Amino acid sequence: MLSGRRLGVDVGTVRVGVAISDFHAILASGLGNAVRKESLEDSCKEVLKLTDGEDLVVIYLGLPLNMAGNHTASTQDAIQFGATLQNMVNCPVRFIDERLTTVSATAALRASGKNSKNGRKIIDQVAATVILENALQIERSTGEYAGKSLEDLDD
């Protein structure tokens, strides 16, 4: 597995949750939330500001599919966000199925003693961490980047 930091991103309509791995890709930690801006470019810039110039090897973006695995309006938004982000970075952007990410993130917050009102501000960040943890687990087991590229989504 290639050393280097990985970014996890949970695209929302109001906030974009961001998580980052350590250099050895062992741990995923919440990095923060970026406020969603009017344009995709400005929203992506907000995400990249959180990385503070880190040299990233891959960015994992949550792909929100419905429970049947079909695309929704949120799926299209995430794909457009990822395409815009891909044009701004020198590393691959990969899409990870995030169907149960919010459920996992909510359960993790509850387990830590936060209720839904207190956790609202960090739920996107926790969801991004779950996306990144899932991707890291796949990378460790396969030796390859997890998820799908933009080109794979066109198939």
Rank of each mutant, 00 (worst) to 15 (best):
G53Y: 12
D152Y: 09
I59S: 06
K37L: 10
L65M: 03
I138D: 03
K45G: 04
V103N: 03
S21F: 06
Y60D: 03
G147A: 07
V126Y: 02
S74D: 15
D55I: 09
F95Y: 10
E54I: 13
T106M: 08
E151R: 11
Q80W: 15
I122W: 00
L61V: 15
L132Q: 02
D124C: 04
A111H: 11
F81S: 04
S74K: 11
D55V: 13
G119D: 08
L40F: 14
A68G: 01
V126E: 09
E139S: 01
K121H: 14
S149P: 10
E38Y: 07
A107Q: 14
N118T: 07
T84F: 07
M67Y: 00
A111L: 12
K49F: 03
D10Y: 01
V130S: 05
S29T: 15
G30S: 14
A146H: 02
Q80R: 15
A128I: 02
G82F: 13
N118F: 01
L136P: 11
S39C: 06
A111N: 14
E144Y: 08
L27W: 14
T101S: 13
K121W: 05
P64T: 04
A28C: 03
L40W: 05
I122Y: 01
G113L: 04
D154K: 10
E54F: 10
I96F: 02
P92D: 03
E46R: 14
P64V: 02
L153I: 15
Y145G: 00
V18A: 07
T142S: 15
D10K: 01
A34K: 07
E151N: 08
F81Y: 09
N33F: 06
G119Y: 12
A83D: 12
M67D: 02
Q76T: 07
N66D: 15
I26G: 06
S112C: 05
G17F: 09
I122D: 03
R5Q: 14
S104D: 14
R6A: 13
M88N: 11
F95S: 00
M67H: 00
Q125N: 12
I59E: 04
K49Q: 07
D155I: 10
I79T: 01
G119C: 09
R6E: 02
R36A: 11
L132P: 04
S74F: 12
A111E: 13
D52V: 12
K45M: 12
V57P: 00
F95L: 03
G17K: 09
D97Y: 04
Y60R: 02
A28V: 05
G32M: 10
D10L: 05
K121A: 15
A128S: 13
Q76V: 07
D77W: 08
I123R: 10
A111I: 09
H71E: 15
L31E: 00
D97A: 05
N90K: 13
G12P: 03
L31I: 01
F23E: 15
L150G: 08
L27P: 04
R36K: 05
S112D: 06
G8N: 05
Q80V: 08
A108Q: 10
L27K: 12
N70I: 01
F23T: 11
L85A: 13
L132E: 02
T101W: 01
G82R: 09
V57E: 11
Q76R: 14
E98R: 07
A105G: 06
T142F: 05
G8E: 06
Q76W: 13
D42Y: 04
L40T: 03
I138M: 08
K148G: 01
A111R: 14
F81T: 04
S43L: 09
E151K: 14
N115L: 09
S74T: 09
S112E: 06
